[in-house]
Design a protein around this nucleic acid. Structure first.
Length: 480
DNA sequence: TTTTGAGTTGTTCGA
DNA sequence: GTCGAACAACTCAAA
């Protein structure tokens, strides 16, 4: 077989898309009009076997790889999957194919940075930005240092040059790919049921975005109101797609701006902007993790590493399994385990309960979320946990302790969400669904929910737990 | 260098 | 039932 003139490798990591893909375009540029591009995904055991990776996210990835392969075949190409350490796989492919360049989207997570830094020494690796619209370092204070408070960061972010529709890189109509080497088979999901709640493809990401932003009655125009309602599908549910780059950050940001410009009312425009703010939060935490890598293993403010966390295996297991006795927490944790996704409001309620009510180290919860979440991202997950725990950048004030009963009443007023995930509470009226232990014995029997029998009694008393965590944090601050 | 205003997402208590 | 204040003091960002 006659080798193509020039071959460039498009090393796909978390950019499973053809539209607006700068790494793919860089590879095409290297290959030139006569050359070929090899789309490559490496199944890295160091990542796939990590304690921070769970089967739902892996299932989503594998399904996404199959979809990407289908899309590539439709334009004359194919996906090549290889297992192994990236250094070994890439070295061998470069040698066998005579590849001149390896183009990849820069990944800011700690493992990826270390991996890529080593590869840059020995391989023709070219990294291009794309995980976020504004790469770390692009938005800085006037003295050049990174922002650590969200609001000024977001103002500077919005003041930067806005993206244009014409910035979106079109997908290639045709992609020439060599017939060698062969691909390994894309593995089956470790759990066949895992990942079934999100269809993993660029097509689905595009469809979801369109459904969220298009039209005068688009959900984005109610987002400010409905985003906190776990009983309403008011969010875009795009996080898994942004996580794996089935949708580019630029495409999402442009959609937010376009929706804002077309908003039918001031309220609607405000809602569109609050969705944009969520995209900016994502970029904020990416640049925090890049600039302050110590947050990966400990608190942004090291004094909070001194907190005397409770060693409470039973409490942690109850939390993981949705058996705390607080319905909104338990419903959230059961949905998380079943589907790999929950609303941000529920993430805050559940996280606050673990840290503030059970006084369990936020890093245990951070890891559990990473294992369960389809959209699990080191930067966003770490930032969210540190915020809730009150130990991070721009953290929640120490006295902001969520009351699981009032949060339930406020955001799931009818109890519809709780009933969906806790069948044992299916017959409880709204008035008592968030504190079922207040029902008398007769009512419990009549409604089929017997506290301590088929639904647990609260594992902590919230008022006591609140006082305990306030004391614990105060002790650390005064010892400083 | 100093000063000033501000800081995602809450709860509780008492008037 | 509603409403405003208190919950500490600190750090950040910018003038």
């Amino acid at each position: 077989m006659k080798p193509a003139l020039v071959t460039a490798i498009w090393w796909i990591r978390r950019d499973l898309r053809l539209t607006d893909n700068a790494a793919l375009h860089a590879a095409l540029t290297h290959a030139g009009p006569e050359g070929s591009v090899l789309p490559l995904f490496i199944l890295d055991p160091a990542l796939l076997n990590s304690a921070w990776v769970g089967e739902k996210r892996v299932a989503f990835l594998y399904e996404g790889l199959r979809a990407l392969d289908d899309t590539l075949r439709a334009c004359g190409s194919r996906l090549v999957v290889r297992s192994g350490a990236p250094a070994d796989v890439l070295t061998q492919l470069v040698r066998d194919m005579g590849a001149h360049a390896i183009c990849a989207e820069r990944d800011h997570s700690p493992y990826a940075r270390q991996r890529d830094a080593a590869l840059l020494e020995v391989l023709p690796l070219e990294l291009v930005d794309g995980v976020t619209l504004r790469p770390p370092g692009a938005i800085c204070k006037s003295n050049g240092s990174p922002y650590t408070v969200f609001t000024p960061y977001s103002k500077a972010w919005k003041a930067a040059v806005r993206p244009l529709d014409s910035d979106i890189l079109p997908p290639p109509a045709h992609l020439r790919t060599p017939t060698e080497p062969a691909s390994e088979a894309i593995p089956d999901a470790p759990d066949k049921r895992a990942g079934t709640h999100f269809t993993a493809s660029e097509t689905e990401a595009t469809r979801r975005l369109g459904a969220f932003v298009n039209g005068d009655a688009a959900p984005i125009y109610d987002y400010a109101n409905t985003r906190n309602r776990p009983d309403v599908d008011g969010t875009a549910q795009l996080s898994p797609y942004l996580r794996f780059g089935m949708l580019s950050a630029r495409t999402a940001v442009l959609a937010a701006y376009t929706a804002q410009a077309r908003a039918p009312s001031a309220d609607a425009a405000h809602s569109a902007e609050s969705w944009l703010n969520e995209l900016i939060w994502r970029e904020f935490y990416v640049q925090i993790l890049e600039a302050f890598p110590h947050v990966r293993s400990g608190a942004f403010r090291p004094v909070y590493n001194e907190i005397a966390w409770a060693d409470d295996e039973k409490g942690f297991a109850a939390w993981c399994n949705g058996r705390t006795g607080y319905p909104i927490v338990d419903a959230a944790m059961r949905q998380l385990r079943a589907t790999g996704w929950i609303h941000n409001r529920l993430r805050m309620i559940a996280a606050s309960f673990l840290v503030k009510d059970l006084l369990i180290d936020w890093r245990q919860g951070e890891r559990w979320f990473m294992q369960q979440l389809v959209d699990g991202d080191p930067a966003a997950n770490n930032g969210g946990w540190q915020w809730t725990a009150g130990v991070g950048t721009d953290a929640a004030p120490y006295f902001r302790i969520f009351n699981p009963v009032s949060q339930g009443r406020k955001f799931d007023a009818q109890g519809d969400y709780v009933r969906r995930w806790l069948p044992e509470l299916a017959h409880l009226p709204a008035a008592s669904i968030h504190d079922p232990w207040t029902l008398g014995d007769d009512a419990q029997s009549r409604l089929g929910c017997r506290i301590g029998d088929n639904y647990p009694a609260p594992i902590v008393d919230h008022a006591c737990a609140r006082a305990r965590v306030l004391d614990t944090f105060a002790a650390v601050r005064s010892a400083e």
